[in-house]
Design a protein around this nucleic acid. Sequence first.
DNA 1: TTGTAGGCGTTATCAA
DNA 2: TTGATAACGCCTACAA
Lengths: 346, 346
Amino acid sequence: MSSPSGHRGPPSRRRQSGRATIGAVAQAAGVSRATVSRVMNGLPTVDPELVERVRAAAAALGYEPDGTAQSLALGRTGVVGIIVPDLGNPVFQAVLRGLSSAAGDRDYRVLIADSHERAEEEPILAREIRRRSDGLVLCAPRMPDEVLRQVATVRTPVVLLNRRLDGLGVPTVSVDHAHGMRAIAGHLAGLGHRRVAYLSGPANSAANRVRLATLRTAGTGRFALHQVAGGAHFEDGHDAVERILATGATAVVGYNDLVAYGALARLAELGRSVPGEVSVTGFDDIPFARYANPSLTTVAIPLEELGRQAWNRLWAHLAGEEPSPDVQFAPELVVRHSTGPAPVAR
Amino acid sequence: MSSPSGHRGPPSRRRQSGRATIGAVAQAAGVSRATVSRVMNGLPTVDPELVERVRAAAAALGYEPDGTAQSLALGRTGVVGIIVPDLGNPVFQAVLRGLSSAAGDRDYRVLIADSHERAEEEPILAREIRRRSDGLVLCAPRMPDEVLRQVATVRTPVVLLNRRLDGLGVPTVSVDHAHGMRAIAGHLAGLGHRRVAYLSGPANSAANRVRLATLRTAGTGRFALHQVAGGAHFEDGHDAVERILATGATAVVGYNDLVAYGALARLAELGRSVPGEVSVTGFDDIPFARYANPSLTTVAIPLEELGRQAWNRLWAHLAGEEPSPDVQFAPELVVRHSTGPAPVAR
DNA sequence: TTGTAGGCGTTATCAA
DNA sequence: TTGATAACGCCTACAA
């Protein structure tokens, strides 16, 4: 209310309280600002004595170059952004980790925006992040194609994660979900399961559609498939177990590790043996999957590597190099202890 | 090598490829740059017709104000930074989530730096992040006091997380680990455990020192305490189980949930019943703790709330408000299913 | 209501 | 080797 523009932002106090500027240092050292700049950036073409004077003055004043001013002058920020739908999801945490780590190797930092699953916010966040960074990694599984097309059609480098968008030449790092799901189907069929429940993900999730469709196709003639409404979180899996058991399925295929984990927990509460009575599979291979009890059979997506590959493409663009070709990972099945032979007695 | 300054940075191409500027829009709309600025910021004192012209021109040119230039002119970036020792640790993930969420409510974004547990990097990262942001949240459990003092003694607002530093008036959000550990000691003693193993954390971790010392004190006269070397990760807990069992302890107190989780997994592999033969406790209450099998008895630190409180203090400083008093959370025991009465037979 | 002009802090060009 | 000086793109008194 106090702000004239109606913003809720804080007082935009210019003249940062007392922060020393390059001019102050120049004055104190008796040189020009240009020389201070050269010293601060370690350019070799400065008289050693002046270097010393400048260093001393800078130290005395506690001077540090202002990043914003540097960014403006240099035309680059040294920052890349990432938009994720849910920071609480281990999948995006891992991707973020990979991105942050790879970017850090080049002294780039990561600016982060969490859309909290509100797809309609994402275009806005994308604009905002782009204005503050040199490039953007977009994880927006639920964003409608047309919106995505708009967001991706900008001069700022953008890399799409786990989402294809043909036509425009937007670099993409994706995952062949079908490949992974076929492996799961084969694994379960081979174990003798004839009645399988798919614990589904969010209806508007592209990954969910692909995973379900693949499971249906791959299972045809091998097992009956029941679909049970789920979601993307623990609770969704936890709460779906009774409905799953009602189908008489001997194996449940979770949309992702999280729902599988939830199902596992509920099954334990109910005293059902896994995999003795029911087998359970996940998808993604989040770090906790191997520590489930029983450990979770799943499909391993190299999540951190996705983040790193996204960085590689961003970096190629920033450095003006040839754009790396799109990558698509074929995730492999990881058999652990949550799956076993179908129980013989029916 | 191609860069004169020895930097490994990318080409600092000034003149961002064709990006429209405020001047271009002004020219296209036949008004001054000041007017464009007013329109873009929604100032009401502009003739509706001009507003329309400017809007159209901006849209036609795909103009968007440059964030860096705005930051420089306004003297604020709209960004806060956070330094964490390990982005892979659920504890810091949760803190980050709380910070990001709270900051987002004020349209602030979060710039992140992961020190990968290398404490000596942290001062450097801190400087770098500060230059690009309006304030900094510091999670640096292993940083030496003297270094911390230097890092915290700057004009940029800093908030310390889970770390006290007396003398300077640096806002702090902390946790009373002793309070939580006393609760665990009481809980186990009450269940009849007379021989307890402490699965320790990193030796140079302040939290580890406090937790261990408290457990020792609180256990005196109630149970014998064995210390077993551990760490901060799954594997450390997993690999310590044999040594724990060798002590004959009937209860193991994990330094944190992660090591407790690892211990749980190993105990299951060995066919040991939890809590029938051995009870296990954690610390922190990370999201996965409740989904362990058996679910993990632990001490609940309001991790996201820590992040939010850190933001509150940063915001107070940014808004020039009265600095909120330091907070210290007294985390409470959460009894789940990994603890039970000590086995009678010895 | 609009435009002019100066400033934000830094880097880079070009003479000297 | 050093120093003026002009960008970088935007915001904002101040004047008209």
